[in-house]
Design a protein around this nucleic acid. Structure first.
Ligand SMILES: [Mn+2]
Ligand SMILES: [Mn+2]
Ligand SMILES: [Mn+2]
Ligand SMILES: [Mn+2]
Lengths: 163, 163
DNA sequence: CTCAAAGTGTAGCATAGAATACATTCAGTG
DNA sequence: CACTGAATGTATTCTATGCTACACTTTGAG
């Protein structure tokens, strides 16, 4: 095994077997993967904004330690990430003080919270337990497009109508 | 603003407002985030295994360039990732040769493919377009727990029954 | 008013993932 | 069977995330 492997006709491969037709091209695949990667980059911003908003709502202010406990990382990680998100214009804070959301940060937080809630509610409406729904949603939420989120809400609305 | 901020009672904060009761604790949150992070680590392995299997099925072998085009990254990234996944025991390959799946790699690929298909089918059954379903699934799939996947399949089965 | 513990910040290290630039190997053609 | 273009590999750099260890600030007790 691991033979030299015949080069697929240099430039312009001959499309093996019955490929060409209904095959999702490499480009389509690549596009999906790129979108997923972009979502991952946004993920941190969304989770932090949401967490800061939640902390401010529940305890009046968001401190580095609180975020660290909530996100399950050390205060060092939070500190550095907060600095980055501050540079991005989502948060503001001064040394040894609490963390605040900017106008944009509030928008991101609100959008994230809503989406998070929709995803959790949707999963639960399918019979998924509360705990698992929450856990799965934490990852799923960042990859739900507008179209899919709308489909989730449509589903929930129909459920509600026929209770 | 950004006042000194009263220290929340040093050790043992007094639980502001009406928190204690129905509040998802920081620990629960942290758990969800940790699971999501773990899923992200597995993500690359799953996508690569799935892609390699798909390439082998569709064109006979998986080469670095093919993976690069499919995943939308440079061949350098693929090369290094393949080396890592080889060290992890999912792939095998020798310099300038094609890439193969190990026994474990095949298992991962098969599981990933199935889950990917279920997620796509589920989204489409909710009315999401094929293209968006495929794109969203590429990210969602890695955060769908066994319980949630089962719920998706249950839903699809019911749909099929009452066609 | 002091001061120790809690909270923050910083230095330094590691891994994953992505890129550009350059080097090396393979294989089909001429 | 030599050669050249395609495929691979390597060197180096960058960013995002984590961590441990250690330093510095704040603040509530005493
Ligand atoms: Mn999340
Ligand atoms: Mn969330
Ligand atoms: Mn994927
Ligand atoms: Mn996939």
């Amino acid at each position: 095994m691991t033979q030299p492997g015949k080069r697929r006709n240099a430039r312009g491969r001959p499309k093996a077997g019955g490929e060409a037709a209904r095959a999702r091209t490499a480009d389509q695949h690549a596009d999906a993967f790129r979108r997923t990667r972009r979502a991952h980059i946004e993920e941190t911003a969304e989770d932090y904004a949401e967490a800061v908003a939640e902390l401010i709502a529940s305890r009046g202010e968001a401190r580095v330690v609180d975020l660290a406990k909530m996100l399950g990382v050390t205060h060092v990680t939070v500190s550095r990430t907060v600095a980055r998100l501050q540079a991005r214009g989502l948060l503001t804070c001064e040394p040894y003080r609490a963390i605040f959301l900017t106008e944009e940060g509030r928008r991101v937080a609100e959008r994230s919270r809503r989406r998070h809630e929709v995803v959790v509610a949707f999963l639960q409406s399918l019979g998924v337990s509360r705990a698992v729904a929450e856990a799965d949603a934490e990852g799923l939420e960042h990859h739900v497009s507008g179209e899919t989120l709308a489909a989730f809400e449509r589903f929930l609305d129909r459920r509600r109508e026929s209770f």
